[in-house]
Amino acid sequence: MTQAIEIGFLRILLVEDNPSDAFLLRTALGKAGLAFELTVIDDGALALAEVQRMGARAGASLPDVILLDLNLPKHSGLEILETIKQSPALARIPAAIYTSSDSADDRRAAERLGADRYIVKPNRLAGLAGVAAIVVELGRPGPRAS
């Protein structure tokens, strides 16, 4: 990640209940030389409420990219993903699953619900830099595959 990234300010919503994971992602994004705002919600129910609130209030400031853990308290990341993708206001925001599970079932379910990416949480620092790059790519403004 030596290349400078010209994308301006990136608003990222991370739904993740493990503070260590949030910390690691924040560190990786920082190392990528990115100007960003990372909002972390650590509870499935709170995340669902927030997403519904965002979908209902047109013109509200929306995140540029959403990252969802799968195993969350009360509601799973898949439920939140489904809500996002069914909301006309939010469906176009890139939403990625960010999980430690690489089971084929979880992948299929995420794909079926319209996840834009399925990112398996890395266990190496190099992988973490890769995640930062993917987040930047997802959140980059400009033409997107429909």
Partner: peptide
């Protein structure tokens, strides 16, 4: 397997981070 993977990932990542 599943529950042990999580803390383990933290161990390796933080160790690398520290080393770095």
């Amino acid at each position: 397997s599943h529950d042990l993977q999580e803390p383990l990932r933290m161990v390796s990542l933080f160790a690398e981070l520290l080393q770095d």
